[in-house]
Nucleic acid binder design. Structure first.
Lengths: 226, 226
DNA sequence: GGACAATTGTCTAATATTGAACAGCGCCGC
DNA sequence: GCGGCGCTGTTCAATATTAGACAATTGTCC
């Protein structure tokens, strides 16, 4: 799913440096918990860089059903789809906690990357994004919801989690409703599967109510129920 | 779904020109119907340009279920995910008809784009890809299979179809099995839905057995069954 | 042109999934 | 500290979906 390869991490750092440089004179934007950074259809063509906090991206279908696409954390960039030139945001970006952001107009963003010779790196970054999404699509098409929930948990853990010796800790609070909107099923179903995972000791909650993912055990379980 | 905006079409033409230039001295690769261009795990890091024919991209899950990601036609580029540097193809590329291709090593591909000042254009192209895939993901998560089949047909029609006055003609032969692997359901189900669409006069087969999509009627129907 | 293979349309029973309901619980704001 | 609200865990009946099976048809290859 999310590929943790050294090369793309290296590029991410370079891009961060470049963007910090670009935005050092502009002040941060603070977005309170549950507030939107942008909503579907907004025309403002800017890219965002997260200094602190978490942002979730959600699309809503014509019937009003929600699909959560991603959760981004400190150091991540989002809103880069305005580079497509299609105009109008496709999704809504909402702060899951109080979050502070830097905003860069899409043109300036590209210029900065060009100036710092990061265009090829950014192409690689986007290619990884396409590859990840391809994986997500294949999972939605071919595997059942329990399996998908497992893979989604692993994906989130690898992207946002803090590593503990034998497990990964997820400090962001993600509701079952939100998981349902990522996995493509209903809330009661997520509840049942999470309970099952808990009974099998594949996940647990620590005293601070953080979700702990036991990466190896969960991976092994998912492989066993094929 | 597939966005037909003039800007990305313009870039596609520029890229085609650039690639034709790059490959004018190398001979075309001919791939017979049902033969593979590459399969999962192949290490060869090259990008392909389709001169003639169609190529389908398919991923296979661990249980052996298939997911068809895309069908590409003349003028399209595929295999560009090797730019991610992840190594190893994620999907299998198969010719649906006798197809002729030009092959460009991934490094040369980037150099050529850089030389022709097309890096930013390619970033835009990838951003459109990400946006399209995002749409596909949202559909898989939020809408039912009949609706998804409809949207998939529209997507294919817009990407590959020839325009007739009130409809779009799809000249590539796509089996129900393949549609099932795109939509994420079973073959009998596709059969039933296609029959229904036919009865409602949203699609039809012409004398040459080409599938005709009545874009407006189908769109209206999909909106009506929300 | 004939034989084989692949595709389609259809049916079923078994299974999975939905959506709605409701109680308990914990967190939040006041 | 209290009330309320949102989240969780669980249930259930109604519905949708799957995974076979099978003829009928079409296409393909000698």
């Amino acid at each position: 799913m999310i590929q943790q390869n050294p090369q793309s991490d290296q590029f991410k750092e370079q891009m961060q440096g470049s963007l910090l440089n670009e935005t050092k004179n502009s002040s941060a934007i603070n977005v309170g918990k549950h507030n939107h950074v942008y909503t579907v259809g907004d025309e403002r063509e800017t890219v965002y860089f997260i200094e602190k906090g978490q942002i979730k991206l959600v699309m809503v279908s014509s019937e009003g059903k929600e699909c959560m696409l991603a959760i981004h954390g400190a150091g991540d960039v989002f809103g880069e789809l305005c580079l497509s030139g299609l105009g109008g945001r496709l999704e809504t970006a909402t702060a899951m906690e109080d979050t502070s952001l830097k905003e860069i107009p899409c043109g300036k963003f590209l210029n900065r990357l060009a100036k710092d010779s990061l265009l090829e790196g950014f192409i690689k970054y986007l290619a990884v994004r396409v590859a990840d999404q391809q994986q997500v699509i294949a999972n939605l098409v071919t595997v059942d919801s329990e399996q998908r929930l497992g893979k989604t948990l692993l994906q989130i853990a690898r992207k946002l989690g803090k590593k503990d010796p034998r497990s990964i800790r997820i400090e962001v609070k993600i509701s079952h409703e939100e998981l349902a909107a990522m996995v493509g099923t209903t809330r009661p179903r997520i509840s049942v599967f999470m309970q099952r995972f808990r009974n099998l000791d594949l996940i647990e909650y620590n005293t601070e109510h953080h979700l702990i993912i036991k990466e190896h055990k969960l991976t092994a379980y998912l492989a066993s129920i094929l």
